[in-house]
Design a protein around this nucleic acid. Sequence first.
DNA 1: GCCGATTTGTCCGTATGTATC
DNA 2: CGATACATACGGACAAATCGG
Lengths: 241, 241
Amino acid sequence: MPKAIYQTIYRDLKEKIEQNEFAYQELLPPEHQLTKKYDCSRNTLRRAISCLVTDGYVQTMQGKGVRNIYRPIEQTSFTIGEIESFRESAKRNGLTPRTRVLLFVELAVSDRQASYTGFSPGTEVYYIQRLHYLDDLPLIINHNYFLKEAVPGLTKEIAENSIYDYLENTLHMTIVNSKRVMTVEKITEIDEKYLKLNVDDYNCMAVVSSQTYNSDGIMFEYTQSRHRPDYFRFYDNAVRR
Amino acid sequence: MPKAIYQTIYRDLKEKIEQNEFAYQELLPPEHQLTKKYDCSRNTLRRAISCLVTDGYVQTMQGKGVRNIYRPIEQTSFTIGEIESFRESAKRNGLTPRTRVLLFVELAVSDRQASYTGFSPGTEVYYIQRLHYLDDLPLIINHNYFLKEAVPGLTKEIAENSIYDYLENTLHMTIVNSKRVMTVEKITEIDEKYLKLNVDDYNCMAVVSSQTYNSDGIMFEYTQSRHRPDYFRFYDNAVRR
DNA sequence: GCCGATTTGTCCGTATGTATC
DNA sequence: CGATACATACGGACAAATCGG
């Protein structure tokens, strides 16, 4: 898949850093050495480095060099600051995912739903409620709204497996970006029931609302993810510009 | 401050988008037109556009154009996915910030503190507890650990105002990036006392832990921010690469 | 379906500026 | 001061995707 040269270099360097080929705080070889090694132009190499900066893996310092500031994240994390489906996250952490579909309906977006989903009122969508388990522990309840026009042929069976797998491999849709808002909200009766939460223990939970766009610039999904608070971790790296 | 051409273009386009010079879903003028308008090379313009993509303002589509996908965010938000000090966020939202220093001490990092701060045991730091108000409402308790070596001369008086203002304008330090983890945790007695929270209402809160690096690639700050759950909102835009 | 025009994506080489050592 | 290293910018070439005729 990584056709572009800069992406190949980016992945190679990323892997090397993850496998501790450079110590924490150590400088990477200077640009001119790496351009020789990868037999590419300076621009191309710099583009790869720039991706690593965005990931929080390295820090560039004018006149000094490129410093490795990567630290492995804890094992327990399964929700991180990238676009990744539930199954992908699970797999990456060596855990067994399971998905139960609680509700699968088709509906037209109401005025109230329009106000928080970002879809126009009347838009035809699939509305799906799903419960995600990790190693048989119910962790997340997802409320998905998929634009019917952009995601035709969605079924309950697909929803039980990976919707993203269907989108990318069957419909050949490309997911481009996702705007997310994280908040903390009171748990509802539904949360309590399905996530087996005890109000005396935790009475609120982490909620991630996201609007996702495909390569046509169309928002095809609105999702509200409600996470068990004791298992929720969200990673992020912010870069000052 | 925006000396670089690409940054000037980036800010100009960003402002135009925020002020609705382009409708949601509308295409921006093609590259060759914009390079003429800004009298710059194609690469420079593309760099500016790329920043807007990272911000989630636009979406580029090969063969089609650059689509505006910007939507204004709600007023209530004061915590977003950028590096921004408390006072900066407050100002941006037209609110009055106030800071109360609860504790200001110098200490050597213990083994236990080392495990979550990322500082080595024995490192000399300032440990500061601060309570942040917005329009006289206590919203956030911060536990700051500043590397003494990198932030010399910190005082309680500075902590009562803006530490970041001191870092940038007096010490001339440049903040580069910040790795953050968001979690949901039980509220403690300290939280309850200072944020005037009622356990029957909310018994947990949003916690943002961050490690911040300066332009020397040195982690000079670890901070745990504990947010009143009902006022916490965290924005993020993820881009698939 | 083909073809050409348009538009963005990738890559290169080079020049100059700026910060560090 | 010179050498080294990253930052910015330009211009050109070709590839890939899209769209209209």
